[in-house]
Write a protein that binds this DNA or RNA. Sequence first.
DNA 1: TTAGGGTTAG
Length: 486
Amino acid sequence: MRMLESSATFLRGHFSRRIFTIPTATLNRLINDHLRDNGLVEARRIFNQNRTSLDISTWNMMISVYVQRGLMLEAHQVFDQMPVRDVVSWNTMFMGLKKNKDPESVLRHFIEMRRSGLNPDELTIAAIIDAVSGPGSKVLVLQIHTLAIRLGLSLSAYTGSALLRGYTSLRDLRGLERVFKEILLKDVVSWNVLIMGYMKLGFVEDGERAFAEMPERNICREFKVALLLFREMVESWSNRPSHYTFSSVLKACAASSSLLMGRQVHSMISKRGMACDVVLSTSLIDMYAKSGDITAASGVFKSMPVKNTASWNSMIGGFARHGLGVEALEEFERMVQCGYKPDQVTFINLLSACAHAGLVEEGEKQFMLMGRFGITAEKEHYACMVDLLARAGQLDKAERLIKGMPFEPDFVIWGALLGACGLHSCLELGEVAAKGISRLRREHPAAYDVLCRVHGEKGDWTSVMELRRLMRKTKAKKQDASSWIE
DNA sequence: TTAGGGTTAG
């Protein structure tokens, strides 16, 4: 460090007297050494003094350091002042914006990058795909995939894994398989993401249909394929399953309530001595609870030498799912006694446990006590409370709670109220909820259903017919698609 | 000089 400082003084001296021009390579190395040694202030000083003569790689490194420390404003400043930018400069910015959860800026910058005439590389494609992925972005994912194919980047495992995530988010099984086939050298990540995608889609879309079509007894078609892939991977030496692999597979087992496979994975984890991993154990609890085996979930939880908030949340959530409200409350008490700090999720789980078990008073009490732990009630907590009150038939109270909320009711809150109105055949409030949802310009799958049924029960067939007509009309509406990249 | 996949909820 002292050597670095003295060399900087030496160079600065010569520079100020304009005797020598300092070789760019030396300056670059000096700044890089400072950055590596955590000397950001000194690096920035040398950088600012010499910025006109610096290598593009040094500019990029400055941006990268700022991005890694979450200093996006500073990263932006350096990026904006660059005389020339290369693909690394753009990629580094994309990663920073992505980390900052700013997908719109990622896209804006991507378009700007294309206009500047630079071609994306595999890192660019991956960052963009991750930024645009989501159920409503079909056109974008397809466009970027097309671009990746044209540039020959869809063959890479790095880009491929992002594309796999993209197609999973579109719930596009065929797209998922096509991308996987395209990847030339599949690595552990490609396999993990594929397995995860298969499981997610298998559960949501193909579930019962695949189950019925299946020639064998206990495994749905997609799960069998995924299990075979998983075994293939376990057996191949270069693709040893890691913590990531097991965690993905467990999450997938949980999502598909695949207890059989979950147990197999559990024994693989134990055999490899990975049973102590907090994340894996938490995944195991979740898997067992979601597959219906709450005893096994509780067994894993009790055997954990180290726990964290997520583990407790997972256990409390498991009890909630099983309608074991009292157990959830008791576990929560133990959590607090053991000195763990509950977070937002803890209370969502706890309140939903009360809602499922009909423990109205206890739920209200916990809702009031949240502040003691420094947690402010957010929309999610209000949604649980609306659910709790409305399910228990206290619809007026639920409505009052919504009116008194410090924010506008959202889709989840109206949905909870709507569901309960269906349960208790309350037309008046059901219509309020349905109107609330339509004001958000959204469709609720149960909205028409609930209203039709309640109108039907009252013998109001004119309204039922009108609703059915409306339903057909909305369903027939097609989504507009437009191209705005390139 | 940039580097992807893991836990809890609704």
